[in-house]
Design a protein around this nucleic acid. Structure first.
Lengths: 337, 337
DNA sequence: CTGAAAGCGCTTACAG
DNA sequence: CTGAAAGCGCTTACAG
């Protein structure tokens, strides 16, 4: 590969001149610039970004820590992040953590060594070591789909899960449901806890909460866990007219169990989800759900990061984004009955 | 951030000594090595990979060009690539092309500037400029889920689509079907062409081919296209007992249309797909299909690339991988009727 | 407007 | 076993 020296030699000018010409520095004669550009084309020369990064202390790459890119929710987020950052000349490097604490730390270490310009992270394990790593990091960081721990002063972008759960339950209530069950995610999840809380508070407000019979916490967050949870919930309380699942996968699992038992949705029971996965649109599913606006979240996180890169002294405010109710066919109104 | 000079100064040794100690060079006394390691820990020092990359001409990053990471098929491929490369110390950088010819070229340009160590690519537009770019590239490249164009001598890893279509149609034939329709992907697709050919040749072999009535080419490769194609196919020939869709999305679209018309699958008509998406497993879908072994393909591509990086003079042989038949509930045997 | 020089943070022959 | 020096491919004050 040709380098800047070859170009300079060929043209009989100094490398500094070539450098200035290709970086559009004002102090270069139009003529020189033309010649340099031509030589660059002739040699098929491309500046070495590594060398440039070393000296400018800027790599134009940002790291995106993500639990699992093949989860469509996260790939949606990732695409949004990427789209807005790409427009500003950045390359985004994904780091799948598989929700593994070591990989999360590895990612940070890697980001340091490779001199990333900034990080957008979705960590699951905020232990002391990890927080320590972050706090000594001289790099802008924004949390995405997570809340920043108190010890750190970095902005986050997340959905207001509590508020969204409130909206979902109110929707069911307005449809005339009073016996509304809840299928929760495992307790370790902050997200799950918030959604559960939104459900509980709303139900309690109307004197409708019955913790012992109407709530089941699933063992995981996937379809099979939803099937099992629904069967348990149904056994506990067959009189439920509606079920709010803490995520779509759990909701779809519920739907599967119900379909196997030939319990009609929404005629016999309404089901509501949370996420608005692509799945939810399928003809057999048609799940009413709360959409997490991945596009807005991802681009917002990217914008915050860009701001922080531009001005390292400021930390912009966090953003709590509202989920949107998507009505489909899985919930029925009880009003006219 | 501390750098190698700080460590050297602190210890009163030369930077070269520090460098050798942390790179485990044999010619360093055990004592020095200990001291250096301690200082590194104390300073929380991490070597600058950019500087190291510049001098070693090795970045330990490889680029993975992909049409769209939120397509679960490609994210599966990506995870497999990443897993095997990660084990060898490489970072993989995804480049989503959105099947856009400019982005495909941009990706290559980017890879050159950033000095990637190798590339795994899934391009959709192999025009002259692109091929020219590749051929002048001083970087190992392997094609994934694509065939290498004649002009280039780079290995590829792909599924044997023709053979797989053959297997699918034979399966239907063995079940006793004789009137088997085909829903194809748009003609531009090599993959689609191969699958169509496999279908045609097999049908023709048994004198069962009726091109004018039994084949419909969809306008795209997604669910709505499948719905539309199925409706056209059904109109053309309502006597079909089975349909082979060129991919699962098309197959699922067919299933949707059939469900809306209350045509029972598999009792009234059998449907077969290709891909084995996660979708296909859903209770309402249970699609019999040909699985493309993403994990094997991705890791194979990564291994080939690793070989090429290790020995740049050799180009290892390409690999054509067999798809696997996954039997679920969407196809019925006509034998006992 | 242009060139010579220093330097980014490392690694690696070359001496000793 | 260790150090001084050169150099990877650029950029950027500093002179002129």
């Amino acid at each position: 590969m040709a380098n800047i020296k070859d170009i300079a030699k060929h043209l009989g000018v100094a490398v500094s001149t070539v450098s200035r010409a290709m970086n559009n520095h004002p102090d270069v004669s139009e003529e020189t610039k033309q010649q340099v550009m031509e030589a660059i084309r002739a040699f098929n020369y491309r500046p070495n970004a590594i060398a440039r990064g070393l000296i400018r202390k800027k790599t134009f790459t940002i790291g995106l820590m993500i639990p699992e890119i093949s989860d469509p929710f996260f790939s949606g987020l990732a695409r949004a992040v990427e789209r807005t950052l790409f427009g500003h000349g950045y390359q985004v490097v994904y780091g799948n953590t598989d929700r593994n604490p070591d990989k999360e730390k590895q990612f940070i270490a890697n980001a340091i060594e490779r001199q990333f310009d900034g990080l957008i992270i979705t960590p699951d394990f905020l232990d002391a070591t990890f927080i320590e790593m972050l706090s000594s990091l001289e790099m802008p960081v924004v949390f995405l789909r997570r809340r920043t721990p108190q010890e750190l002063s970095m902005p986050y972008v997340d959905v207001d899960h509590y508020q969204a759960a409130t909206v979902a339950v109110n929707y069911l209530l307005e449809l005339g449901h009073k016996k509304i069950g809840f299928i929760g995610m495992p307790e370790s999840s902050f997200t799950g806890t918030q959604r559960l809380l939104g459900y509980k508070d709303t139900m309690r407000k109307y004197g409708l909460l019955s913790e012992s019979t109407d709530i089941v916490v699933a063992e995981g967050r996937h379809i099979p866990n939803g099937r099992k949870a629904m069967s348990e919930l149904y056994e506990q309380n067959p009189h439920l007219t509606a079920v709010f699942a803490a995520n779509d996968l759990l909701g779809i699992g519920s739907l599967e169990w119900l379909a196997k038992r030939d319990i009609k949705v929404p005629e016999q029971i309404s089901v509501m989800g949370f996420d608005n996965l692509e799945y939810a649109e399928l003809h057999w599913i048609q799940l009413t759900t709360m959409e997490q606006p991945t596009h807005r979240m991802g681009s917002k996180a990217a914008e915050l990061l860009l701001q922080m890169i531009a001005d390292k002294t400021q930390t912009p405010p966090s953003d709590l984004i509202e989920a949107r109710l998507i009505e489909r066919q899985s919930c029925q109104s009880l009003k006219r009955t």
